[in-house]
Amino acid sequence: MHDDLNWAVLGTGVIANEMAQGLQKMGKSLYSVANRTHQKAVDFAEKYQIKKVYDQIDEMFEDENVDIIYLTTPHNTHYEFMKKALEHGKHLLVEKSITLNSRELEEMIDLAKEKNLVLAEAMTIWHMPIYKKLWEIVKSGELGKVQIITMNFGSFKEYNMSNRFFNMNLAGGAMLDIGVYALSIVRSFMDETPDEIASQWKASPTGSDEQATVLLKNSLGQMATVALSMHSKQPKRAMISCEKGYIEIMEYPRASKAVLVDAETGKQTELACGDTANALYYEMTDMEKTVKNRMHADKNDSQDEMHLAYTRDVMAIMTRLRKDWGMKYPGENWD
Rank of each mutant, 00 (worst) to 15 (best):
I109P: 06
G173I: 03
L86S: 14
T73C: 04
G144M: 07
Y70T: 08
S155K: 11
D67T: 06
F153I: 02
Q147E: 15
E95C: 03
L86Q: 14
A174C: 14
E80D: 14
M161L: 15
T124D: 03
E107G: 07
L71D: 13
D67F: 00
F156L: 08
N76Y: 14
T150Y: 03
L92K: 04
N163I: 10
K133N: 12
E158W: 01
F166Q: 04
Q147P: 03
N101Y: 13
E107V: 13
T77L: 12
F156I: 03
D110S: 15
H75T: 06
E121M: 12
S97R: 07
A122H: 11
A85E: 11
K90P: 04
M161V: 12
K113M: 07
Y159H: 13
P74W: 00
M175V: 14
L100R: 15
M123I: 08
L105T: 14
K157N: 06
E80I: 05
K157D: 01
N116D: 10
V146M: 02
G154E: 05
G173Q: 06
I130A: 03
L100T: 11
L143T: 10
Y70L: 06
Y131N: 04
N101C: 12
V94R: 11
M128E: 06
I98N: 14
P74Q: 03
E87M: 09
G89T: 05
G144A: 09
K90C: 02
K113A: 13
F165S: 13
K132L: 11
W135K: 11
M82Q: 15
S102D: 14
H127A: 07
L117V: 08
L170Y: 00
M151F: 01
E107Q: 15
L143P: 05
W126L: 01
L134R: 02
L71K: 03
S140R: 08
I149Q: 10
L143F: 02
L93I: 13
L143W: 02
G141N: 11
M82C: 15
F81C: 12
S102H: 12
G173D: 07
E80S: 12
L111S: 08
S102Y: 12
A85N: 09
N152M: 04
